[in-house]
Design a protein around this nucleic acid. Structure first.
Length: 576
DNA sequence: GCCGTTTTCGGCCCGACTGTTTTCAGTCG
């Protein structure tokens, strides 16, 4: 059975090996595969069971790719891919991870020196054989040698969790902004698109003094190694192996530069193609018609001139946003100001909670919320959980505080722990005492996919459950999410009306934007929560919303944008 | 390999930086 994930994986490997085979990542066939990947990712609904005619309607998928998808579904493999795998065994493909070593050079050293794996490459470098090859030299040989030494630290595939990259990026950008000859320093790249893990930090600086900015950057204490530094661009590595690119432009070019540096690559390519179709040329310096600058000051100017609605950064992945912005219009995405409350919210009733009920209520009021659900841990989470007696006392405390704070609706809730077989805390009757429950997994992360799926389906069918918290249980970059049959889970959510949480904790961001987008293709409710354990955690709502936008989530589908009456009747509907 | 408001064939995004070169190829974003 070939699901979307398998199809994307097949096409990505095909693109990678074809780039190697053609000796260029820019080869047209490679780009065609990449376009097909974006089309498949954007295609709502199931992939398996589609006919050839249906497959071809997917943007970027033509006859040849459709045949490969059908072949994958029918036989579990694709002949063309198998042939390429034969030609390029894994140890050789591994070499593409070495920064600075591209397909042309790899082909050359394989043909001339018979290098088939990392060990052979290291021997060739030690024997000073690379420098003898045409187009290479001593410097390149030494550069490749150093790149291999650092491979584990910052290979091409390395991604840094947003939770680590964002604070560093903000620190660098704010230091740049304080500099007198800097007009603006804007964090761009995948951080601005709010990807949960990023390859590097991209900062665009508007300035009249690019040289001074470049010197200023190279003096940062974070600079461990300079990768390159020219007229307009400086790149360096931090000690942790994070790559930082700082690009300077003149202030009137800031818009087009931000657009270019925010990407994604696929979005940029599509925009530039659109410019060409209209007899114009788009680069980081502006949108040009001959020598005339059509637009460059703001991103909106450029989108306007290309007859596109402004596209928010989280959507810029080349998965249908340009077609939508130039056609029927983009969906009205959820925005921070739409949020009326938080429904996954802890007090110090939880063992890992750090702020009192009063402080958490005051914090919610300061954020303008109309309601919050206190969802302290149930009894099954032994250290952090609460007994029935404790919960009932807790309810009294909440009800009493409700009188003190009439301006906000306080829900007595619980974060139920989902056991290995889908069981929940307390008994069914007691669970119905709560006004609102979010159910989440906190253990047994390595069960097989079918068990994990049944476990979650069992939990979400319980009438006390209003939402599924942090669906996969992942910690970005640290712990992978559990294996799940996502389609089955989405089906269960759709049937029951249970909401899918988007958890705004930066190291979680769970459910993922991909799953959220699939949920949007069905009639599924979502909820954006902070899972706050301290008053300082409320800032996560900004992150949760931004990440939800990446999943094309619209306001009307997010239950905590609803008014209190609608929310309460939805929350209570399965309890009677 | 895909695709069509100049096209069903002939195109396919644009530029910075480095190293090896005397004008450009390779890599990267």
């Amino acid at each position: 059975m070939a699901g979307r994930t398998e199809v994307v994986r097949m096409l990505a490997e095909l693109a990678k090996l074809t780039a190697l085979d053609e000796g260029s990542p820019q080869a047209f066939r490679v780009r065609a595969y990449e376009k097909a990947i974006h089309g498949v990712e954007a295609h709502p609904g199931e992939m398996s069971g589609l006919s050839k005619a249906e497959l071809i309607t997917i943007a970027g998928v033509g006859g040849a790719t459709a045949d490969k998808i059908l072949e994958l579904e029918a036989t579990g493999q694709v002949a063309k891919l198998e042939a390429l795998r034969e030609k390029y065994p894994p140890p050789f493909v591994e070499l593409t991870k070495i920064p600075g070593l591209g397909p042309k050079t790899l082909k050359l050293i394989r043909a001339e020196l018979g290098v088939e794996d990392l060990e052979a490459l290291e021997d060739a470098i030690a024997g000073e054989q690379l420098r003898e090859l045409p187009g290479l030299g001593k410097t390149t040989e030494e550069k490749i040698g150093r790149a291999i030494e650092r491979l584990g630290l910052h290979g091409k595939d390395r991604r840094t969790p947003l939770v680590e990259a964002l604070p560093l990026a903000r620190s660098l950008a704010s230091r740049l902004e304080e500099k007198s000859d800097v007009d603006e320093a804007v964090i761009c790249g995948s951080i601005r698109r709010f990807s949960e893990a990023v390859g590097d930090i991209d900062i665009v600086v508007a300035t009249r003094e690019p040289r001074a900015v470049s010197e200023f950057v190279l003096a940062f204490s974070e600079v461990a190694e300079v990768i390159g530094s020219g007229e307009t661009k400086t790149s360096f590595l931090t000690r942790e192996g994070m790559q930082v690119d700082v690009r300077t432009v003149s202030p009137e070019q800031l818009g087009s530069a931000m657009l270019y540096f925010t990407g994604s690559k696929a979005h940029n390519i599509a925009l530039r193609q659109r410019a060409i179709d209209r007899g114009m040329l788009l680069s980081e310096y502006g949108l040009f018609e001959g020598d005339r600058v059509v637009a460059s000051v703001t991103e909106t100017d450029v989108y306007d001139a290309l007859e596109l609605e402004y596209i928010p950064p989280p959507l810029r992945e080349g998965t249908g946003e340009i077609e939508a912005a130039g056609g029927d219009g983009l969906p009205r995405l959820v925005a921070r100001e739409d949020i009326k409350g938080d429904l996954h919210y802890h007090s110090d009733r939880s063992g890992d909670g750090r702020s009192s009920l009063e402080d958490m209520i005051e914090a919610a009021l300061a954020h303008g919320y109309q309601y919050v659900a206190f969802t302290d841990h149930g009894e099954d989470l032994s250290i952090n959980g609460s007994s029935r007696e404790e919960m009932l006392a807790h309810r009294d405390a909440i009800r009493s505080l409700q009188e003190t704070y009439p301006e906000i609706t306080l829900l007595f809730g619980c974060e139920l722990n989902i056991g290995p077989d889908g069981g929940l805390d307390y008994d069914p009757e007691f669970r119905l005492e709560f006004d609102y429950c979010v159910a989440s997994i906190h253990s047994y992360f390595d069960l097989p996919s079918d068990q994990q799926t049944i476990r979650l389906l069992t939990a979400l069918h319980d009438p006390s459950v209003n939402a599924i918290g942090h669906l996969s249980g992942r910690y970005v970059g640290r712990r992978p999410g559990v294996e799940l049959d996502i389609e089955a889970i989405l089906e269960g959510l759709e049937v029951t009306g249970v909401a899918l949480e988007i958890n705004g904790a930066l190291d979680r961001l769970d459910a993922s934007a991909e799953v959220a987008r699939q949920a949007m293709a069905r009639d599924i409710n979502l909820v954006i929560d902070t899972d706050s354990h301290h008053t300082k955690d409320l800032v996560r709502m900004n992150y949760g919303v931004e990440y939800a936008r990446r999943g094309w989530v619209t306001s009307d589908r997010v239950v905590n944008t609803w008014g209190v009456d609608r929310l309460l009747s939805w929350a209570a509907r399965r309890r009677s």
